[in-house]
Write a protein that binds this DNA or RNA. Structure first.
Lengths: 176, 176, 176, 176
DNA sequence: TTTT
DNA sequence: TTTT
């Protein structure tokens, strides 16, 4: 039924530590900025460099993995789709945003401290198993789990009430 | 945990009607040949054409859709991965085969008779709905359904015993 | 020297006839909107549809081909990269735009009136030959050529003075 | 004029040091094996791993860069197309081979000894400049250059007579 | 604004 | 074996 292909493939480095929030329904939503730099020579022979900063959003299980394993500087492969949104700012001006909705992620490098092995996909043979996914409860870690945090110290505790996030994402926004 | 990306994107035309078989477990496995042609001029200025024939395999729900909607000549977008296999022929000689395992398909064109609208993905927001997928029984059409065939006359009836296919594909071969 | 991959693959239909302008240096710059639609079912089982409108820009030879062969409704494959720009509107408000800079295009469908065969790449074996490209003068058709227009009636004549476009694109903006 | 898209995107590690040869015309042709591994759980919950070994071929300038910078174990992004060939072995048996013809390459990792920055494309904004390419003589380094080898000790000297390679590649095989 |  |  779908009409069209909307596919993005990025390889780059994160410009910041990812930030994870949770929807009311408990779904992780992780965002990070990813830089891709291209180089060319202009007609005078000068090297020209240009960097694009992509806003990448990871939902669900992928959001949890991204929030847990990715850090500022991480080199990462991201596959996903482009999403354009329109919103009205607090100043009443209409603005537009563009996001890359990830549906596969793979950490690159691997030998370094920040690198290393973690990779995750969605509905993909490679990158996370169906077993893993089906065992996952469809909600965020409970407050008890979250407050302990011994096992995942860098993951932000899910909000006691997730609805500070509900303006941005209904659970139906899960893009799959 | 996966290491690596193995991704193929093809747009081309089928050289034959797809053939669908069913595994013992009732999973559809559809195969077709897809041509992609490239053109260049050699140094003498002559146009050189070269066609690659890709063997594409569609599993499961995607195999059913491919078998039902694709025909010889269909223009199609296929996304998947490359799989190399080694086998020993009846003459005792080792041979190699290369297959494209599709995980997304979309029919192109659309205005023609053969074209038209059908698209299907796997674990994808676009291309078939999760609802569709979850409603699907995890087995091939029963013999009764198959023999009637009123609703899908071009779909090969599943074999009375699927095990003529079992040498090729165990159900665990489902690539997802 | 480049760091990163920034790759976009789109298959969709144009929402408008492409518009071609020329830079001061005579390079064609063609723009069009391309729709990709995805479908999913939400938790209530209702079908949800969402369309992204991509602003696609074709430069140089590819811009000439796109301007000549593509039309509103054309189904097309586009490969390129994402480019984010920031500008200040006439109201003094900072705004952002996102463009897909095409570096390969292929018309799909083919049987219809609007479809049909034309394909073009840049630096690609498939889709346009190196010979074609090297023979091409690095400037727009001259006014004489343009005013005749017998051979390409739908191509906008290049402006007598191209510099109405110079604010948008210097010739060094050619992304290759 | 081209009909079809034949695109492959790989991220993986090399299983061997690349081997570079030169055509009669002096074009570098570098080959290496690249592994991509995927993981899934079967129905019994056991982790299943499968590795595909891709034969990747780099031509021309890209072949020189690949031969110079890539090593066994290098993690690399490769973009290219699939090419199927048929040949008759010395035993008189017809065999088939599948190669990935690279048209873009980028080294990943970067911080390690083996990693590190080098990337190269063909006809791409990112990854090597048009200036670089056009300045490059369309031949291999001369024997004098090659014999010195001080700057590139791991590059195989081009053969005194390249025609030991001519059976495999005419210069017209350059895929661009 | 396209398409089905 | 497709397609243009």
């Amino acid at each position: 039924m779908a009409r069209g292909i909307n596919k993005v493939i990025l390889v780059g480095n994160l410009g910041n530590d990812p930030e994870t929030k949770y929807t009311q329904g408990g779904m992780a939503v992780t965002k990070a900025s990813l830089a891709t730099t291209s180089v060319r020579k202009d007609r005078e022979g000068n090297t020209q460099e240009r960097t694009e900063w992509h806003r990448v959003t990871f939902f669900g299980k992928l959001g949890e993995i991204a929030g847990e394993y990715l850090r500022k500087g991480s080199q990462v492969y991201v596959e996903g789709s482009i999403r354009y949104d329109k919103y009205t700012g607090q100043d009443g001006v209409e603005r537009y945003s563009t996001d890359i909705i990830a549906d596969e992620m793979q950490m690159l490098g691997g030998r370094g401290e920040g690198g290393g092995g973690a990779g995750a996909g969605r509905g993909e043979f490679r990158g996370g198993s169906a077993g893993d996914r089906s065992e996952r409860p469809a909600r965020a870690p409970s407050r008890q789990e979250g407050s302990g945090q011994g096992h995942a110290p860098r993951r932000e505790a899910p909000p006691a009430k997730a609805n500070d996030f509900a303006d941005d994402f209904a659970d139906d926004d899960i893009p799959f």
